[in-house]
Design a protein around this nucleic acid. Sequence first.
DNA 1: CAAACCATGTTGACATGCGCAACATCTGGT
DNA 2: ACCAGATGTTGCGCATGTCAACATGGTTTG
Lengths: 203, 203
Amino acid sequence: MQAAETLIGEAGPRGFTLREVARRAGVSHNAPYRHFASRDDLLLAVAAEGFGRLQATMTKCMQHGASARERLVLCGCGYVEFALRWPRHFLVMFDLAGELQSKHDRPQIGESAFRVLLDAIVALQQGGVLPADDPLPRAWTAWALVHGIAKLAIGGNLPLNQRKTLEFTRQAAESVLRGIEHFSNHENFDDTMSSTGRGCILE
Amino acid sequence: MQAAETLIGEAGPRGFTLREVARRAGVSHNAPYRHFASRDDLLLAVAAEGFGRLQATMTKCMQHGASARERLVLCGCGYVEFALRWPRHFLVMFDLAGELQSKHDRPQIGESAFRVLLDAIVALQQGGVLPADDPLPRAWTAWALVHGIAKLAIGGNLPLNQRKTLEFTRQAAESVLRGIEHFSNHENFDDTMSSTGRGCILE
DNA sequence: CAAACCATGTTGACATGCGCAACATCTGGT
DNA sequence: ACCAGATGTTGCGCATGTCAACATGGTTTG
């Protein structure tokens, strides 16, 4: 496992090779099969480990916040910070884990990381900052924002260094928070939604 | 190229094989090398084609908007709609193109797609809806939102079908737009920024 | 018109990687 | 002492990416 994680950190998902992991661990090229069913299975284990550390990073960053509102912003910053510090782990977690777990009837890895963010939203609702309606759409919005920032930053699409990326994340998070707290016209997404004002899908 | 694109649509980046493309094209396993330097080069060509279609989808969706504000929202919806309709193309464009083009001194593929969104932001500034400061941070925020929604939806992390995902995108985009239009405390990101209120990076 | 040239395609070979099967070793329990 | 299970090893078949050498058909040029 340790060799696998360091290799992911160095080579990324594309350069990740079962045999190279075995070489680094000082064992034969087939030894990993005694612990993992396949290459993808090892990747999935690395991804699971990564999700645990992502959750830890977020909760740790939140501890520096005084208010519930600041804690939510810091939660998002922690998300991006994790992605910046372990970009290749992040790629494995989201680029591959989704594909792989969908074959295994999706045990929904990484659910706990999302719950941290969701709880931060609920805390704001209980504090009266946000309306006490369905918190999921707001949580999805926040998640999408930080996830998008993380992905774009990793891909080199944002011309910012790490510190500026984090600073931008904080400001963007506060902007979005302003946007979702002023009104509450998020509709219901519980399978009974009407199709008002559809964009231009499948035209 | 046609065989390559259909294969990407069916098998995704992981199942994409140079030899399979050759088989589908009815040629020998080495024929593609007369047109592309390597497997990655072919992937990059597919990604470039995809970015062109992404830009076309966004501009087409924007035409249905009456106001500049509605056009920006539809622009984001077009982004997500493209990702939902050609999810594997989308993965190639962003998951692989970033890695590959970074080796080739980044000709910055996909720049034109971002410009569509940036122009929509500038249009709102010229219309007085948004302050006329640096439009980049706002554009990044919008981009990150729709990109995050697209990635999460493709990965199956949003429990919404395609139509609901698009409806959610529209509402989230309007929420974020409210957030970035009310205030304008986006700081300057031109290499001269101070490190005020840093989150908890590299602690 | 013939010769050189180029684009395209083909065959063969080599290195690497994944995954399977059979065999070896080492440990703990009875 | 013996067995069962866990772990590791060697060897193999298959698929892939990539390179090198060769073939072919059309185009340009002397």
